[in-house]
Design a protein around this nucleic acid. Structure first.
Lengths: 364, 364
DNA sequence: TGGAAGCGGGAACGCGCTTTCCCAGCTAGC
DNA sequence: GCTAGCTGGGAAAGCGCGTTCCCGCTTCCA
């Protein structure tokens, strides 16, 4: 038994489907009071639920918004997803979720799937990559997005524009000042730290990671410090852990070489909180303590990690807002152009905040 | 310019829409090689993407699976969502996300929205509530689900059946042995702990919380211990924090009353990890240390929290598997009845594992 | 060589809904 | 009193696709 249809409701109410449609699913024309009531009662008694697919077909708009993340279980993406979800609810739309593991090829597939579902808009979170091996994938993704936009879709990307994408109408980028914030973090850290800095970054070519690395180096330079060495590993907890093991070995070697613990201490900047936690875990597993033997800082200020001890110095990013803004940017009335003048939230105005905590205190 | 349609492809290829459909969207009948090739090329050159809405309308099935969670940013739900997402991908379906904040009324709305979209199945995660104020909401939710199932929808619920729901065809519950696992946790803890136990639970009527409380009490009893006092607060980090403050005051009072720190120590069981972390943070903020001044245990073994120090004793729940199993249970061939004999994953066979770590070590 | 069986392709209908167009009935204006 | 103008309702044409039915052609067997 399939759900009851508009026609059935209409028949029961003794009116035409057209009229039933007009009263049940908001139209410019409003039928007479008594008829409306009859229809509503018929719908109620039949438990009528409009078929969104059919509505979408007829109106060619689905009320769907597609969200692409690398991994929904990653707290970074989960936080963004929450914002997206919230904004979607405001707009009375539903969110369609796709996780891709970060590969542009899978992202392209996700875009195609969203396009097939005729999603009104797409939000892409997650770092862009410009690694060589992703070249083709990026090109295909860009092409797919381009087509999607030409067909009237709207897309918002968090962070960087998709590599190689021309910017057609409806293509919006929510800029995150990773570089600038990383620079600020570096200068603030440099103010209270005498030792050297090391950066634990993601794979080269991951733009978010690259930005943060570059920014941090800039900040050091501005503070009159020498550039930090950059260690590359996976952009997740285990990457941080691996790098942490490596660093632990060095620290221990340095300590024993110089005799006491009086050696100049290292300050580790991991390009995201999850990596920082991984690195911290590695140091700890090697018997080192933070910030006694080394300082460590992250990026993102993941909520779940705020109770971590020693409290992690990091850069707070308003992840939920980012998701919300990206979603709003794809809203119907967000027609580009005078987004500032329109009075709505000035999309793209993301800002973060350097947050120094115990993990980088000099006095251990 | 809307996306190109099957008819356009057919025209370009010089065939009828029927033929084009047969070659492009898998049918029992396969047109001739050359024609197929022509159609495929036409599709390619037009950038044809099948309209899933139209397909869904015609086939009356959408390839959509609805997921209902309280909050996607909560790591518990995020982990489940990952599993759901994975299983959905296996089945070549997409997941539609709804977050409800836990209220049955909102859950009902989500179900209705999914029904409108003609989602093939619905997975409901998140604790059921049997509080009085949710009575009406539960009834409405049950009715909505019932209707959904009667219309051929399949639903899987994680944890408990929806309160008041009769179990029609296609209604599946993924049981989580919360009670039993909590009991096991209690007995294991009792083995290495002399002091009293306190339970930090969620609001009364939240079934997951209630189960864990009940199980823990049972376990204590089995171990010959006296029942623990139960503190109630919100089922999240801040609820844990509040309870932690209260407990910290008591502990400090007891310590100063008995002079030294030699008083019998408290072991706190928070009904989930996030609450446990909150409670731990509260104790710490009051100058108490874990496990020196009190032991603490949680439940769920949230991945992001595993690096927390002192390492949290907890019960590992295979959250991802839970999501996966729930999703698979709603699969097309999961026709109920002999699910065991069917050879597939024997759904409902969720099991957890008590994991004792440093936070409950007696020797501080 | 004639007929039946089989196969590849097209015409047409239906999925459930929106929307335009049209028509009947009414009121208002001359 | 007659027509212009308006209002509320219905008929019907799609939206893009799957699918059934039908038809013309080839192939095989008698």
């Amino acid at each position: 038994m399939a759900a009851s249809t508009l026609t059935e409701v209409a028949r029961l109410a003794g009116v035409s489907p057209a009229t039933a449609s007009r009263v049940l699913n908001g139209s410019a024309r409003t039928p007479g009071k008594d008829i409306a009531e009859r229809v509503r009662q018929a719908a109620e008694s039949l438990g009528y639920i409009p078929n969104a697919q059919a509505q979408g077909l007829a109106k060619s708009s689905s009320g769907l918004i597609g969200l692409i993340v690398h991994d929904i279980a990653d707290p970074y993406f989960a936080a963004i997803a929450r914002g997206v979800q919230e904004a979607a609810r405001e707009q009375r739309r539903m969110v369609l979720l796709a996780t891709t593991g970060g590969g542009p090829a899978e992202e392209k597939e996700a875009v195609a799937a969203f396009a097939a579902r005729r999603a009104d808009s797409i939000v892409i979170a997650g770092s862009r990559s410009c690694r060589d091996e992703d070249r083709d994938g990026n090109a295909e993704l860009a092409a797919e997005l381009d087509r999607y936009c030409r067909n009237g879709g709207r897309v918002a990307v968090v962070g960087h524009p998709v590599v190689g994408a021309t910017a057609p109408d409806g293509y919006h980028v929510v800029k995150v000042p990773n570089q600038e914030l990383a620079a600020r973090l570096a200068t603030e850290l440099a103010g209270g730290w005498d030792g050297d800095f090391v950066i634990v970054g993601g794979p080269e070519g991951l733009l978010t990671s690259d930005d943060r690395v570059r920014g941090f180096q800039e900040g050091l330079e501005r503070a009159g410090r020498r550039r930090a060495e950059v260690l590359r590993s996976a952009f997740n907890r285990s990457g941080g852990y691996d790098a942490g093991l490596e660093l632990a070995a060095r620290i221990k070697a340095a300590q024993s070489a110089e005799g006491g613990a009086a050696a100049s201490k290292l300050c580790i900047f991991a390009v995201n909180d999850v990596m920082a936690i991984g690195a911290a875990a590695a140091l700890r597993s090697e018997g080192l303590r933070i910030p006694r033997d080394a300082a460590i800082a992250g990026f993102d200020d993941i909520e779940t990690l705020r109770d971590f001890r020693p409290a992690l110095s990091t850069v707070r990013l308003p992840l939920e807002d980012i998701g919300r803004l990206a979603t709003r940017a794809t809203g119907r009335h967000a027609a580009g152009g005078d987004s500032e003048a329109a009075g709505g939230a000035p999309a793209g105005d993301i800002t973060g905040e350097v947050t120094l905590r115990r993990s980088t205190e000099a006095a251990a």
